[in-house]
Design a protein around this nucleic acid. Sequence first.
DNA 1: TTGTTGACCTCTT
DNA 2: CAAGAGGCCAACA
Length: 125
Amino acid sequence: MKRTKKLKNAISDPLFRDISFFEQVYEVVRQIPEGRVTTYGAIARFLGSPLAARMVGWAMNNSHFALPPVPAHRVVNRNGQLTGKMHFKTPDEMERLLAQEGIPVKNDQIQNFLTYFWDPNIELV
DNA sequence: TTGTTGACCTCTT
DNA sequence: CAAGAGGCCAACA
């Protein structure tokens, strides 16, 4: 499918949504329950591309445009680090949102990460 | 159109 | 055990 121009519109215009890798990522992220987190790799694997974790990162970068809003703060890297915190409105936004949901964060690192980890490959059959 | 660059992960020296 | 490279898909110059 030709999608160069179309996809560009889809990204820049939230109302012009298209089924793309990005959209799939958004869908998964929206399924993350409150107070739980998942990883880029888990999402990538769930979408059928275990090695496409970087793309998930890219998707999150554009998640600001997505409607309905995507809880991007619930996605961290494999170690439970808040690697994307600098891409929020304010650097402490991500940590604040997580803490608000009852997830302890210290030095950009989620404490007891495995306790809060939510794997779409298991939860979403 | 080609090359570089990502909010990353995994396998290989 | 540490370090490097490859891989994925899309954006941008």
